[in-house]
Design a binder for these strands. Structure first.
Lengths: 233, 233
DNA sequence: GACTTGGATCCTGGATCCAAAATACGCGCT
DNA sequence: AGCGCGTATTTTGGATCCAGGATCCAAGTC
């Protein structure tokens, strides 16, 4: 017996496949906010029974992508202005702390981040929004992971579901903002690299507040009617 | 007061009852870390079928109280030194932000907090540890709620499960610390009340770092052996 | 005597079944 | 024709059933 790394990859489980599929569908907007989700229908559509579907719905409900009431069924959670705002409040608090920590650490490796920035700029030029969102999330997640706090990584993983939903909405429209993203990312990374905590925190704060501002504006401009039908309870 | 309690409140659902029971059992230590949880056994013990149990396990797994591997079953998650540490890292980041926000707000109402502090001191005198933990959590949760960020409230609700687990372990032993808690709480609240953001942030930071320090120390002292035992009943 | 191996047994994940709540529908009434 | 009420249908939450993987035990092998 060597190290005990013989049996890996048991991440089968139908349930997680359903979660994955559903999450993607919601994040992409294939399922529009507010639309009803019937278990039977979804099950047959994915070729499974209702059992894994129910569990998947449970999980996605906790993730905030699904809204459900007992006996009343589930629906895709509406985009929620307040929620977005609050998510960004959380993000600012955590990310400030993360970049501050990194700025004081001696083990921060800039290179992967510089690489991501380069790829990000390319994606912007190509107007490849899907990749752009992926890279943006990868960039920030990379920071969390570099800071080494697993709880923060985990918490933010959940929140990015929300962020991605509105992000895709936003990127279509805000060309000016798309340009700025990677400059801001670069500012953050270089400040960390230069070991300047205050500067890094400031850069991160600016980045996040700018994103929030744009997001909320875009939301208010584009959303009022079609998004939040069920927002009153 | 009951602002909008006219129609909802159908929080029956067997599953949530099971979650509740299980969570309490784990937090109280009635189920020791590492012990296996058999669905059938738990189900009959609670007088339900395996179905709600499975869903409850799923939820508690995401909450970090249960550890499970596919086809291998579930067990009570072991107390994890690193995890505790990380939770406190998260807490410090968020709570700093929260108290800072509150210090700048004009709508902060001290009175409920002062009341909690008084009750807390009483609980300390009476060595009523259960109530003490409840009040501690209520105090901090109260701050999150006062700040009005629902996402932070929600995220921290999850984290308090972890905090409570070790907290009960800690309070038994650290008499000196028990005394200090409510002084520190008072310092935080009064700083907020006095509209002194820096002071409030500093007080909150000190409070959380002190708690973390004690917790980790206690953990290292008392924990090595008895934590990950697999016990059957 | 320690290690492997075959098989009985247990347990989990998924499928199917059932009762009750909720919604949709149609009928009768004013 | 509009409205309300009672019933049919849909859909959910929970219970039960089943197949496959994991665990345990004991006998066989070196």
């Amino acid at each position: 017996m060597q190290p005990q790394a013989l049996n890996r990859i048991p991440v089968d489980i139908l349930r997680s496949r359903v979660v994955q599929e559903l999450r993607i569908a919601i994040l992409r907007g294939d399922l529009s906010p507010g639309s009803r989700i019937k278990q039977e229908h979804l099950a047959s559509q994915l070729g499974v029974s209702r059992e894994p579907v129910r569990q998947a719905l449970l999980l996605l409900q906790r993730e905030g992508l699904i809204h459900a009431e007992p006996k009343r069924g589930a629906s895709v959670a509406p985009l929620d202005r307040q929620l977005i705002n609050d998510v960004y409040g959380l993000r600012e608090a955590l990310e400030s702390r993360v970049v501050e920590t990194l700025s004081r650490s001696s083990r921060f490796d800039v290179s992967p981040f510089r690489a991501m920035i380069a790829r990000g700029r390319t994606a912007v030029r190509r107007r490849d929004f899907r990749t752009l969102v992926d890279l943006d999330m990868a960039f920030h997640t990379g920071l969390y992971e570099a800071a080494g706090n697993r709880v923060i990584v985990e918490v933010m993983r959940g929140q990015w579901s929300q962020i991605r939903r509105v992000m895709s909405m936003l990127l279509d429209q805000r060309a000016a903002y798309r340009q700025k993203i990677w400059d801001e990312h670069q500012a953050i990374v270089e400040a960390i690299h230069a070991r300047r905590p205050e500067r890094a925190v400031a850069a991160a704060g600016r980045h996040i507040r700018a994103a929030r501002k744009i997001l909320i504006e875009t939301f208010d401009a584009a959303a009022p009617a079609p998004l939040a039908r069920a927002s009153q309870d």
